[in-house]
Write a protein that binds this DNA or RNA. Structure first.
Length: 467
RNA sequence: GGGAGCAUAGCUCAGUGGAAGAGCGACUGCCUGUUAAGCAGUGGGUCGAAGGUUCAAUCCCUUCUGCUCCCGCCA
């Protein structure tokens, strides 16, 4: 294909005015004028704003093609880049030729009309929704966040570890898992006991899609010191909410020679870094979100970048909730897991920003979290964000083999399945900690989008895997 | 898994037991250096599906399907 400019570069003034340029993209709107030309707004995904093309009636194919290029049609436009006479854009293109690559069949029923759509409707046309302002902006912000995460980690000398998607160990324990099997589902091989014989399956044992790369990444942490995973994870929970997906992306850093404070500091520094990246690099998209989606988005991101995160012990949070004067549906007492209403009160009403809750009762947390000296709490932390709830969950890991074994026994877990995880405590164990950031929750928080299904290109949820 | 709600034009939604409505979009015309333009007109419907009640059902009842929201699970 011949060389052409991105609309982003043209609007940024990277090409000299009065030179000939070519752009390729899709029509957002066309406004024909009887004054002898037509205004076409063309977008190519490179930035929020489209570029305005002035198509003069003198073009050979003006009546035959150009005027038929309705919203959604694809064009190659060549012309002179000039300072715009109109308001709303710095530059525009005075077209000398317009090639229509693809028209829109039946414009009346083309789903992406130049008018507001609901997010619910756009989910039913997920193959076309990236052409909208909102989903296009989400896509760029999502990319910006992902790139910023890798950049942050790289600058801090973390190694990105590609942990497996398929796991044959059933010891992850973070929820229901999707089974991976090549057995003939209509004719399953059975053992003598009448159970499915997974010895005959592809891996010779049961296999699943991962729910977390944590246990795997801990092994590399015990050699590379600073590591992280960033990839898709899967939960087969029947969760039907605006903040859960069956397939979602998670960032899981793991740091050696570190405790819970170091872990919280890392989470804070990373969130500040990536929020700043979005403020710096995606001002155009943020302006849109701030105007159309959530009027507090920019303010919120600036507050994260410019303020220390509030840190609060679970035990203190319980006291705050008990003395809040609020009537909660679920009563609060030490030892209970916090309900959404409690987390919301803390993050939204009490603090108004993300808050890091630390040191939870051991009975409501996972076996691998490090037991505190009080023997009642573990070194766990959650980052709670207004509107999203739990954005990050993490902990200092139990590095003492005897204590870990005690916890495994207490929870009645199959110790033999954790043999390689326990080995890490036998061979040069060190204090270490890590956390998991729900990437889509971060994108939702950053954009103000209310449903997590609108911040991932093709959302997977119970009963929903179209596209 | 528990609870609530919704389903009427391409989209967003009114509405009524007795002849299907608006706004936006589409199309046509007028107008215009216009900005999701303005003005006028035209077309567009198995009222989610299947049963039932009724002289008559888009409306009332039952079942089903789909979607949304809240809670739980968590990230």
């Amino acid at each position: 294909m011949s060389k052409h400019w991105s609309i982003s570069d043209l609007l940024d003034g990277k090409a000299s005015a009065d030179t000939e340029v070519t752009v390729k993209g899709w029509v957002r709107t066309q406004r024909p004028s009887k004054a002898g030309f037509s205004f076409i707004n063309l977008h190519d995904g490179s930035c929020f704003n489209p570029i305005q093309v002035i198509a003069p009636a003198e073009l050979d194919n003006y009546d035959s093609d150009v005027l038929k290029a309705t919203t959604g049609a694809s064009l190659v436009v060549t012309g002179r880049l000039v300072a715009s006479q109109g308001k709303g854009q710095s530059f525009e293109i005075q077209a000398t030729s317009i090639e229509v690559l693809g028209l829109v069949d039946d414009p009346a029923s083309y789903p992406i009309q130049p008018k507001p759509h609901t997010m619910e409707f756009l989910r039913t046309v997920a193959h076309l929704r990236p052409r909208t302002n909102a989903i296009g902006a989400v896509t760029r912000v999502r990319n910006c966040l992902a790139q910023a995460i890798h950049r942050f980690m790289h600058e801090k000398q973390f190694n990105w570890i590609h942990t497996p998607i398929i796991t044959a160990s059933d010891c992850e324990g973070a929820g229901e898992m999707f089974r991976v099997s090549t057995l003939d589902q209509t004719n399953l091989p059975l053992t003598d006991k009448g159970e499915v014989d997974y010895n005959q399956d592809f891996f010779g044992k049961e296999a699943f899609l991962t729910v977390s790369g944590q246990l795997n990444v801990e092994t590399y942490c015990m050699a590379m010191s600073k590591v992280y995973t960033f990839g898709p994870t899967f939960r087969a929970e029947n969760s039907n909410t605006s903040r859960h997906l069956a397939e979602f992306w998670m960032v899981e850093p793991e740091i050696a020679f570190a405790d819970l404070q170091d872990n919280a500091d890392l989470a804070e520094e990373m969130l500040q870094y990536i929020c700043k990246a979005v403020l710096d690099e995606r001002a155009d998209d943020l302006a849109f979100f701030n105007q159309r989606i959530d009027k507090t988005v920019i303010e919120r991101l600036e507050a994260i970048v410019n303020n220390q995160f509030e840190r609060m012990d679970y035990t203190d949070a319980i006291k705050v909730l008990q003395t809040s004067g609020k009537k909660f549906e679920y009563p609060v007492e030490w030892g209970v897991d916090l309900q959404s209403e409690h987390e919301r009160y803390l993050a939204e009403e009490k603090i108004g920003r993300p808050v890091i809750l630390m040191n939870y009762p051991k009975d409501i947390k996972a076996f691998y979290m490090r037991l505190n000296d009080d023997e009642k709490t573990v070194a766990a932390m959650d980052v709670l964000a207004p509107g999203i709830g739990e954005m990050i969950g993490g902990s200092q890991r139990e590095e003492r083999l005897d204590v870990l074994d005690r916890r495994i026994d207490e929870m009645d877990l199959p110790k033999e399945h954790y043999w390689w995880y326990r080995d890490l405590r036998r061979y040069g164990t060190v204090p270490h900690a890590g956390f998991g950031l729900g990437f889509e929750r971060m994108v939702a928080y950053t954009t103000g989008m209310q449903n997590i299904r609108d911040v991932i290109p093709f959302p997977r949820a119970p009963g929903s895997a179209e596209f």
